[in-house]
Design a protein around this nucleic acid. Sequence first.
DNA 1: CGATCAAAGATCCTATAGGATTTGCAGGCG
DNA 2: CGCCTGCAAATCCTATAGGATCTTTGATCG
Lengths: 216, 216
Amino acid sequence: MQPARRITLTDDVYAAVQALIMDHEVQPGARINIDALARRLAVSPTPVREALARLESDGLVSKTPLVGYAATPLLTRAQFEELVEMRLVLEPAAAAKAAGAGLDAVELAGLRGAADLPGPDGPDAIAAFTAQDARFHHTLAELSGNRMLHDAVVRLRAHLHLFRLHFPTAHYGVSASEHHRIVDAVGAADADAAAEATRAHLTAARDRHLPFFESR
Amino acid sequence: MQPARRITLTDDVYAAVQALIMDHEVQPGARINIDALARRLAVSPTPVREALARLESDGLVSKTPLVGYAATPLLTRAQFEELVEMRLVLEPAAAAKAAGAGLDAVELAGLRGAADLPGPDGPDAIAAFTAQDARFHHTLAELSGNRMLHDAVVRLRAHLHLFRLHFPTAHYGVSASEHHRIVDAVGAADADAAAEATRAHLTAARDRHLPFFESR
DNA sequence: CGATCAAAGATCCTATAGGATTTGCAGGCG
DNA sequence: CGCCTGCAAATCCTATAGGATCTTTGATCG
């Protein structure tokens, strides 16, 4: 049995700062004061610095020497296109591998459960939607059986999450049916269909998000 | 003109530790003492700790709380297979995008120059071979025009480099012709041929490396 | 002879203090 | 009126010291 309690402050700080950025409590592009953050979290600057170094690798903050850290600015349209391209490379491949992996009933049920998305009711509907959508794509990547592939997908999700929360007009319910098409193909062990369904979902999602860039 | 002098110790330490691991001056799996490393590099533990945090994100070291850091152990056969799978997802896509990007003569010449590989003569022939091979795949990923794709490929190279140096029987000259097939396809702006040539190269390289696992 | 327990050593983790650098603003000059 | 120079404040960066934890070694008991 593990202690279940966090042992290192660094991990706590890492999670806290990640949440801060994800929830836009610190605006994109805003500078991050190490000392202030340390006081706010009631820890010393050292673990803060360590956590920020890890977050820099994840691309959530950027560091300029002798100046400080800053939250990564919002994605430009070009970067967004790159992100979609990258997802189109990774996620169809993950879906295909999951389809060919011979999943058992439990794994398939878990994926199917993650495919459903919450409706537009309730508080924090946007956050709930985003979290559940992330869970589905995470699970799909995990079921590919390739850990490196999974990690790469998770890495990208951070950026997408960041982007979406800032343009909160999510499209409830639209993605769910597309998700289920993917699940069905995976369940049928049809690798080509799974990849194709994933491609269709990603391009559709891309087109849904694209209008947000018109206003900038 | 840049100061050319080190601005942050952390970056220097990061590079130094990376080199230490890449050159196997610290054995895979060996523990890394923070204080000893700080003394060796003549810096304080703080920047060392910061650099190690970044290296952990890169997967070159692993941390166990209250115990310390350790160099990542050698790839198991399963992990090696995963790595190849991952490369088969990323690099053909990168080659295809490079082929469709309409490269100018300068860029194409740079890629062609990187495709040649040094012969088995001279000191540090293995290191030279590995470095040049890395440079080719690096350049190819960069010419895809997608920064995220490029970063992902670079991230994987670290692991492969680690693996190869430990099994130093490289296959000089074999890869070069395969490299040139890729360059030709990219130069002809034939995306499908570029992807296929890259796939062929990667699977061939995989088969060349596979025998090393028999003896373990 | 093997296993268990205890204590010493080493190491990591955290906190605090001082030096160096950048940034912002005020004042003077062209 | 605009631009530049100098100063002050804030911030980051580095170094050092102390507390907590794990690992290891040695001795003792079954």
